[in-house]
C-alpha cells in the first residue's frame, strides 16, 4: 500500500499557544486512520491543516500528491471533509444543498443528479431529499454531511468526530456507513474521535494525540500489546471453595500485584501470566477451578493510566 498522506513536522501556533506541535504522520492508501485524543489535543487543527483549510505555522504536508499550503484547492478537489460542527444551508433542501456543493466541484450537470441520488440513497436520506435541511434531526444532518464530503468522489475523506452528538442507534448507523463506504468507494478515511471503542471498531491504525503532539501511532492490537507489559495482566478465577489460607498463599505468590475477592471469585492483577502456578497452588489446597481466564485489559483503563487525565 502506498502512502497517500504524508505530514512532516506540522506545527500550528495560535499566538504563543501551540495547538499542533511538530506532527509527522503517514497514512496509507485505503486505510481508515483514527486520530484519538482528549478535547483540545489538536485533532481538528491537524486534519484542517491536512485538508488545506488552515495554513500550518511551519512544516508541510503532501496529500494525494499535492502540497497543502501551495495547492490547497487541488487538495480540496480530491478530498472530502466533514466538519465537527457540520452545517449547510437550512433554507435549502438536502438535494439543493448537494447540488450547490456539486457545482462548486465543477461536476457537470449531466452527472450531478445521478451522483446526488446515489449518495442520498447511500446515506439513507432518499425519502428526505426534498425536505429543507432546517427540519432535519442531528443524525440526518450528520449523514447529509457525509454525503456532502463524498460529492466529488474523493480519494480521501476527513471526518471530524462523525458520531458526536448522535444517539447509540445513530452512532452505530454512521459507523457502519463509514465502513461500507470505505469499502465500496475505495476511500482512505481519516477520522478523529475521543471515543475509544469508536476508533477501535473503525480504524485499521490509530494515532494518539495529546497536547498537540502525536505520541503513538499503531494498530489497535499493537498499541494494546505495547502497553501491556507495564500494565500487567488480569486473571479472573472462579473456585468451588475458597478459604483464607489459600487466599493468603495466592496473595503471597511472587509476581502478584493485587487480588480482589468477591465470594468464590477472584480478580488477580499480576505482572505476567501466572495461570500454571495458580492452578498448582489451588490443587494443593484441595480446591477446584471452575473457570480461569485472562481478562484483556480494557484499553480505556490502560490509556487512562498511560496518558493521564480521564478523557474517555
Amino acid at each position: 500500500m502506498s502512502t497517500i498522506i504524508e505530514a512532516n513536522n506540522l506545527t500550528k501556533k495560535y499566538g504563543e499557544f501551540t495547538a499542533v506541535d511538530n506532527l509527522s504522520l503517514e497514512v496509507r492508501e485505503g486505510e481508515i486512520f483514527g486520530l484519538l485524543g482528549p478535547n483540545g489535543a489538536g485533532k481538528t487543527t491537524t486534519i484542517m491543516m491536512l485538508a488545506g483549510l488552515i495554513d500550518p505555522t511551519s512544516g508541510n504536508a503532501i496529500v494525494a500528491g499535492f502540497d497543502v499550503t501551495r495547492e490547497p484547492r487541488k487538495v480540496k478537489a480530491v478530498t472530502g471533509y466533514l466538519h465537527d460542527r457540520f452545517a449547510c444551508y437550512d433554507n435549502l433542501t438536502a438535494r439543493q444543498n448537494l447540488d450547490f456543493y456539486a457545482q462548486l466541484n465543477d461536476i457537470p450537470k449531466s452527472k450531478r443528479a445521478k451522483r446526488i441520488d446515489s449518495l442520498l440513497e447511500a446515506v439513507g436520506l432518499s425519502r428526505w431529499k426534498d425536505v429543507k435541511v432546517g427540519k432535519f434531526s442531528r443524525g440526518m444532518k450528520q449523514r447529509l454531511g457525509i454525503a456532502q464530503a463524498l460529492i466529488n468522489e474523493p480519494k480521501i475523506v476527513f471526518l471530524d468526530e462523525p458520531t458526536a452528538g448522535l444517539d447509540p442507534q445513530g452512532t452505530r448507523e454512521v459507523r457502519m456507513l463509514i465502513k461500507r463506504l470505505c469499502r465500496e468507494e475505495e476511500l482512505t478515511v481519516v477520522v478523529t474521535s475521543h471515543i475509544l471503542p469508536e476508533v477501535e471498531q473503525l480504524c485499521s491504525r490509530i494515532g494518539i494525540m495529546k497536547d498537540g503532539k502525536l505520541i503513538a501511532v499503531d494498530t489497535f492490537e499493537n498499541l494494546v500489546k505495547r502497553l501491556a507489559p507495564e500494565e500487567g495482566i488480569f486473571i479472573r478465577l472462579e473456585l468451588n471453595k475458597l478459604d483464607d489460607k489459600l487466599l493468603r498463599s495466592i496473595e503471597d505468590m511472587p509476581g502478584i500485584r493485587s487480588v480482589d475477592r468477591d465470594g468464590n471469585e477472584l480478580m488477580i492483577h499480576a505482572d505476567h501470566d501466572l495461570r500454571e502456578k495458580l492452578a498448582a497452588a489451588i490443587a494443593e489446597a484441595g480446591s477446584l477451578i471452575l473457570t480461569m481466564h485472562i481478562v484483556q485489559p480494557r484499553l480505556e483503563e490502560v490509556f487512562l493510566k498511560v496518558y493521564g487525565r480521564g478523557w474517555i
Binding site: 466538519h83 460542527r85 452545517a87 456532502q148 464530503a149
Partner: peptide, 12 residues
Amino acid sequence: SGSLITLLTHPV
C-alpha cells in the same frame, strides 16, 4: 452556523 467552513472545504 458553520456552513462557511463547509463551503470552504470545497474547491472555491
